[in-house]
Every structure is written in structure tokens, then in C-alpha cells.
């Protein structure tokens, strides 16, 4: 799976949910976090640096679901 952002968590979790353990999943991503784009404007207009709140680490979560993260 070649990943970037929103679609990655969803498809990885859905493939794992629907196939159980019938497949080995590897995600290749250039960054180890999800950039939560939708709330960046809110953070900025609330005078909060979005880099502190809009990055969600994904490697550990995916590994716990049996998904290799590269």
C-alpha cells in the first residue's frame, strides 16, 4: 500500500477487518504521521500552532494491528 494521508488508515484497517489475517499488509509512507488537514483552519484562527495538534503518529497503531509500516 502506497500511502499519503487520509486514505491510508482507512484502507489498512478495512483490509485487515475484512480479510482478518489472510493477507500481509505493508504500508510505505514518506511520513510516519497522519496530517489532520480538516481542522488546521480552526487551530490557526484560535491562535494555536497546528503542528502541535494536527499530526497523529500512525506507525505504532498500525503495527499493533499487524500492519508493517515502512
Amino acid at each position: 500500500m502506497l500511502e499519503s494521508n487520509f486514505a491510508d488508515l482507512g484502507e489498512a484497517q478495512k483490509i485487515r477487518e475484512f480479510t482478518k489475517n489472510a493477507v500481509e499488509i505493508t504500508i510505505i509512507d514518506r511520513k510516519p504521521y497522519l496530517l489532520f488537514v480538516p481542522n488546521i483552519p480552526y487551530e490557526v484562527f484560535e491562535n494555536q500552532n497546528p503542528i502541535f495538534s494536527m499530526h497523529m503518529p500512525v506507525a505504532k497503531v498500525l503495527t499493533e494491528k499487524g500492519i508493517r509500516f515502512v
Binding site: 488546521i40 483552519p41 490557526v44 491562535n47 503542528i51
Partner: peptide, 9 residues
Amino acid sequence: DTYYGENLR
């Protein structure tokens, strides 16, 4: 993204 967001902030 956060870069442009922080620039605007």
C-alpha cells in the same frame, strides 16, 4: 498543511 497554517497564524 501545518507549515502554511503556522505562517498565517
